[in-house]
Amino acid sequence: MTTNVISLVSIGAHPTSGRARRAEQDARAVELGLQMAGDKLQVLHAGNINEPTLRSYLGMGLPHLHVLEQPSGADALPVLGDYLREAGAQVVLTGSQAETGEGSGMLPFLLAEHLGWPLIVGLAQVESIDGGVAHVLQALPRGQRRRLKVRLPFLATVDNAAPKPRQSAYGPAQRGELAAHEVEVEEDELFTGASLQPAKPRPKRLKVIKAKSGADRMKAATAKASGGGGQVLKGVSAEEGAQAILKLLIEEGVVR
């Protein structure tokens, strides 16, 4: 039995140039979907069908991409929810956070709430799907993994621990088909009060010295700055050197 997998994709923005591209995490969601369902994978986008960047998802070898046509600023949540329920999705994959717009990463959570489905955050790998129950690996910081058991249907977000997306090729991207679906448009209320502005560089936190006396201030100013010049062990035996290294590793907690 194959699982009905749907990947949700959005339009991304390159981190340095800001130009439109396929979103990194969404592309990973497509990749994971392709690994799970192969040709049967459905890929869904809510937004403008004329966006040329959508073709870069098709370039991953998808024959179709379903587009729920919406103007920008419309709320994607209800239309996505309706589509997913009607399509009988069992596993819905999406990136953790959009690269454009607000990018709050709330969509999967709201969608899960809307559908009443469980949500897995940071899906790294689907180990097995058996009898309506999936065993999956969740990515934790520092490359660690946690095994979870979840009932179908479920939603999952993927982050950078998911498999690297395959290259988008020009040929399939040109041949693939963008299938438009007309849906009702609902205005998103967030942008009534919020405004987007170019990112300001965040100030670096200064080491604030709260000194009660001049002497304290003096002490703080002359205290050894951390990281300036390390300890160099020269002319020690290999054993002593090894002990010193091991001591540091144990202190840092990386050797247990």
Binding site: A13, G18, E99, G103, S104, A194, P198
Partner: peptide
């Protein structure tokens, strides 16, 4: 003010 999108923008609300 929070970071928005891929870090290229801020959202103020």
């Amino acid at each position: 003010i929070g970071r928005a999108g891929a870090g290229q923008q801020d959202v103020a609300r």
